[in-house]
């Protein structure tokens, strides 16, 4: 089947999935509680009549299927409605936070992937050596360390004591963060990225390295690797061309999952570094039952997971000639 035709067909198949997930999320969310009750809990002067007024205003008194269809109608037109807090449109909230979260996450995920390749290959080749054990220990350390604790330690060292890097936010405000005395918008963004990205890379690196190491150990035992060696091919080419392509599929799967889930993936890091991101907004929205915002972010995550999944499948077919796109 042609590539374009395959992609179009996969995208068409996504539509019922997206709608199905939206129905389930919608009903589960409504079972969770009454947002007006939560919003007005701390304010004893609000009367029940005023609450009813708010519920009517937001359409929360209509039967749930009616509310869902209204939501769906807006969704199809690209509108997620108004947040119950702050009176801003959900589209606008997501729009401003989406980029900040993607920037931090893509930077960390791709960097972890790039670091994992030599680390995983090397620790497989030097299996059971000091290097292998060091790579393993460092990566296990990364997995097991609580994110908030590691984040706070980094802030204490690099921001508080050394004053090298900013501790909060994605941008310097009111003025740009000086990097070696230079105030430049790009360097400012980079300086803000470093600490939160370090936390995320450490948390994810171990999985990448372990997966690649296991894959490489398996592949390096294969006859075709020995055959390449018997033909005089250089070791570097054997490892990074002939073995890596055979060992990398699990890593591509993980990469696809991480990119698909990246939007909601790092709320703790976003809290620790006061990162203006969607992960943090999502957690806040859920705790306040801000229905339109919850639905908006849920749908963005759903669509991203589905698209990442499609791209992963295309990558498999690109790597392995035996995989057919059907």
């Amino acid at each position: 089947m042609g590539l374009a035709k395959y992609v179009v067909r996969r995208i068409i198949y996504m539509i019922p999935l997206v709608i199905g997930i939206s129905i389930v999320s919608f009903f589960v969310m409504y079972a969770a509680g009454d947002p007006i009750q939560i919003a007005t809990m701390g304010n004893p002067s609000i009367t029940e009549a005023q609450r009813q007024f708010l519920r009517n205003y937001y359409g929360l008194n209509d039967p749930i299927p009616v509310q869902y269809l209204r939501w769906l109608d807006h969704f199809i037109h690209g509108d997620f409605g108004m947040s119950l807090y702050g009176g801003k449109p959900v589209n606008q909230i997501i729009g401003s936070l989406f980029w900040e979260t993607s920037k931090l996450q893509l930077f960390s995920i791709i960097l972890a992937f790039i670091i994992a390749i030599p680390a995983g290959v090397y620790s497989a080749v030097k299996q059971r050596s000091v290097t292998d054990y060091s790579v393993t220990s460092v990566s296990i350390f990364g997995i097991s360390m609580p994110v908030f604790w590691f984040g706070i330690v980094l802030i204490l060292i690099f921001s508080y004591h050394l004053g090298l890097l900013p501790s909060a936010g994605a941008h310097g405000a009111p003025s740009l963060w000086p990097v070696f005395g230079i105030r430049d918008p790009f360097l400012d963004e980079l300086a803000h990225l470093i600490l939160p990205a370090t936390v995320l890379i450490f948390a994810g690196l171990a999985w990448h390295v372990r997966l690649l190491r296991a894959g490489m150990l398996e592949v390096l035992r294969q006859d075709y690797i020995m055959a390449a060696r018997a033909s005089g091919i250089s070791e570097r080419k054997i490892l990074y061309k002939y073995a890596l392509k055979n060992a990398i599929t699990p890593l591509i799967t993980l990469l696809g999952l991480e990119i698909g889930l990246m939007i909601g993936g790092a709320p703790v890091t976003e809290f620790v570094f006061s990162w203006p991101g969607l992960g943090r907004a999502y957690v806040t929205a859920v705790s306040k039952l801000d229905f339109p915002l919850i639905m908006g972010i849920t749908m963005i995550i759903t669509i991203m997971v589905l698209i990442a999944n499609l791209i992963t499948d295309l990558a498999y077919a690109w790597i392995d000639p035996k995989v057919r796109l059907e």
């Binding site: 294969q222 006859d223 075709y224 020995m226 055959a227 390449a228 018997a230 002939y242 392509k245 055979n246 790597i319 392995d320 000639p321 035996k322």
Partner: peptide, 13 residues
Amino acid sequence: LIFQDPTSSLNPL
């Protein structure tokens, strides 16, 4: 060297 098993001695990818 010609290997024992032609299938496993050719890289599938």
